[in-house]
Design a protein around this nucleic acid. Structure first.
Lengths: 201, 201, 201, 201
DNA sequence: ATTTAAACGAGACGGTACGTCACGTCTTCTG
DNA sequence: CAGAAGACGTGACGTACCGTCTCGTTTAAAT
């Protein structure tokens, strides 16, 4: 018996909720982040400002929820966030890293993730929620692939998988965030190579 | 003849400039970043707002300059930004990485660098200036140490030093930015170990 | 055949109607008028907001109806709004004017009538309804007493009774509205005296 | 030594102050009062909203100040608010009352005074200020004329002049506020006649 | 006793205006 | 004559109510 309270307004709620998140994503993806105002979101979503503030306590939270919902939707689509496992760790990782590099290079995704990182960097609560809802599930999927590699002797059985993931991904993330270099396929490959040299069998 | 325009107002200029940057650093270090307003900086520095805007085009730029000046002052103190070179790369790197980890853990430095990263992440021009004025000199110093190691056979002579630095530092940076784990001495050591395994001779 | 559509829900209607008007009166009488919101009325009446808007087109109309109903109820009680007629016009008028002055001095009545006047002053339609439903019946009663006085020679037979009433009541009303002086019994008497000097036989 | 503080920004202040009050008067005179918003005033005055709120605590206060300033300007123009004194009280009063009736009939003045009365009726502080700044000076001028009449035996020497003024003006005011009758020249005359009958020698 | 449909309480919604805050500009007077 | 003091235009913020619009839920009459 989940619903023991008043009338069910869930349909309207759900519709406006989706409209708000979609509008937020659209705006973040296409505009400079400072131009993403709550008023603009409300206007684009065809929604009153109060409807936004009824659900989220601040603009940060809306932006965060918007990006979050995007990823959750994607996950829901394919159901799993599993990485490819062809048995060849190097090939699999290069595939994934090249895809990741490409993704970060797309302008709209860039703006989205940059906004997300801005919010997260200055709000520990959002950071925690981000890790719980987005980062950890993804990391678990990645670790599962690494464990599978450990089992077949393609990765040091004693390696700290959190560390392995950091060595693999953090350079890409930092280069993207600071725009300190190009995110090429070759770069992606180099990271996989270095990681496997560091944590190979 | 360095000053060719009239009386010597350079002293006042310099004094107010320092006061502004010091006030900015103090505020950023002690308050939530959203509370750092130009008005607060001006008040704290005992300066008119216009004196701030005469020198920098925006609040971002002031904050950026404040952090920048901090580092430049430090550099000026010791004159060089050279890393220690005892001949033992592993020991030297661990020393540096442990110090870096400690530095990031200090609350006031944390807030300062977080503010800097927020500004940088959303402003490509600031990011470029940051890399030119702060990151690159530091990286050059680090690369100098790595080259020295290559010469004595403690590091792969063909290694891409930019990549080496990323593998070494980016995990620490990411863990700090996302608060995704503790920045312990052991963690610092692990990064050095992994890097040396990846790029050792 | 008065009811040609469906069941008779008039009892509920009547109950909620009374609750709304009573709640409105209570709120107007006890709070600053700006704090009288439709939501507050609905909450106090234990009624949905829509139930209010089903019956009245605006908040103004509700407030107006609430005050109106109060007076109509009072009238219904005593059935007639006739003024006393002892044969002595001066005594009768002083009695009435003193009572009126007292009434206006009561805080809750004050707030009620002030709210009514606020609505009326800026809405010609409400003003018309007010005159038709409240003011005119009262004026007719007063004029009846004046006519009776004319017949016995206590008042100029040619006097314009509207004007007489204005000279008698308007000063009291204005003094109350503008809080420009005390509403004492002596003041009430003075108005009667002045009016009788102006329009006496 | 009135100004012992910082720099004098009075010129800008005065300019924006005048613009705000003028815009307010224009809007009140031409629109329904509910459409007179602070934002509209600011826009019309070419002024920021904050500049309005820096000076006045609420919309009511601005509207009040706007009407107040209008009257004070007028007074300042002619310097005195004295009523005509030809020696013939009846003629003088009829002149003034007819002018007053005409004034109230003008739509823009009507809206202005209606707005003023709305604010005053529900705010005792504004009402007090109104009486002090506007009503009392005017009343003094009127009483001066009445006193002059008392001296030449055209008015009862013992008459309470406040009461005389109320009997003279309040009926006109009430009729206007409640729209309960036409404000004709004949009506103005009738009020003078009645007043003189009540308080004549 | 069961059905049925109007009226209902609850309260989310789109909207408008509020009053506040900080930005970056502009103006005035002072050291 | 550069600088502190600070008012200004701008525009987003988050809040409060308005009057509208669903939602299930009484409730009283008709079955």
């Amino acid at each position: 018996m989940p619903d023991e309270k008043g009338p069910d307004h869930s349909r309207r709620k759900e519709r406006s909720r989706r409209a708000i998140l979609a509008a937020t994503r659209a705006l973040v993806a296409e505009e400079a982040y400072e131009k993403v105002t709550v008023e603009a979101i409300a206007a684009r979503a065809g929604v009153g400002k109060q409807t936004i503030y009824r659900r989220w306590p601040s603009k940060s939270a809306v932006v965060f929820a918007a990006v979050l919902a995007l990823s959750m939707d994607e996950d829901a689509d394919g159901q799993s966030v599993a990485l490819p496992d062809t048995g060849d760790l190097e090939a699999d990782l290069k595939l994934v890293m090249r895809a990741t590099a490409e993704e970060f290079a797309a302008p709209s995704f860039d703006r989205l993730i940059r906004a997300l990182n801005t919010e997260i960097a200055n709000d520990a609560a959002l950071a925690a929620e981000y890790r719980e809802k987005l980062a950890q599930p993804l990391e678990e999927a990645k670790k599962a692939r690494l464990r599978s590699a450990q089992e077949v002797g393609q990765l040091d059985a004693d390696a700290d998988l959190d560390l392995v993931l950091e060595v693999l991904y953090a350079p890409l993330f930092q280069r993207w965030l600071h725009r300190s270099g190009p995110l090429t396929a070759g770069y992606a490959d180099s990271l996989v190579d270095a990681t496997l040299r560091a944590f190979g069998p």
